[in-house]
Design a protein around this nucleic acid. Sequence first.
DNA 1: TTATTACTATCACAATGCAATACAAATGAT
DNA 2: ATCATTTGTATTGCATTGTGATAGTAATAA
Lengths: 109, 109
Amino acid sequence: MIGEFEYVLLTAASALGDDAYGVSIREQIESATGRRCSIGALYTTIDRLESKGLVTTWLGGATTERGGRSKRMVQLTPQGVSAAREFYNAIMRVSRDASWAVERGKGIV
Amino acid sequence: MIGEFEYVLLTAASALGDDAYGVSIREQIESATGRRCSIGALYTTIDRLESKGLVTTWLGGATTERGGRSKRMVQLTPQGVSAAREFYNAIMRVSRDASWAVERGKGIV
DNA sequence: TTATTACTATCACAATGCAATACAAATGAT
DNA sequence: ATCATTTGTATTGCATTGTGATAGTAATAA
């Protein structure tokens, strides 16, 4: 099972589609979670996800317009999508009757 | 932030209410997740949750009928409920637009 | 050739997850 | 009483995941 931060990163990369790379993923995570994402957390997790085959990465072309190192693009593999779905479903399944998970039209109240 | 297994344990204990103790929590986890829950994972996590103030535990009375050590009862503290709610909300928020999380009638709102 | 900008990489340690193994207490039979 | 049985809990040691601090790399402009 992947960890929580790994899940967050996969989700952010998925949301960004073709624009997913280190910096944009970091911004996406910070905006989606409201919490800070450190550089170390970011790249070590990308590395770990890649070595597990859950994402692939490659160096982006020279699309930069004003200086700067080239981007390391990130994309989920089918296994990455599966792993994320599994994590999500596991949380949903476990939370089914939790008081903090009740939504409209759901359960006894 | 609590970890995924800590969340699962909090949820199981919450679901069991007054019947929450080591063995019953373990069974609840295994039935809710479909995965095995080892003894070590169980008690070390209970210890950690207690030291963080997310659960309280105490030794149950002599309600056993056929032998056996007394139970270590577990109950969520208000902080435990908050931590679980936070974890759940964080996952929900991040997953809002994920392809694997789409449900009916789910807009940005 | 140097300064600036945009980005990625590494390290070291903390927090969390987990299997294997050992230990404790209550009961009932002898 | 003491011993086997039953029901549960506790400890140890290591693997995995999370994260801040720090360093490094490459492109561009002046």
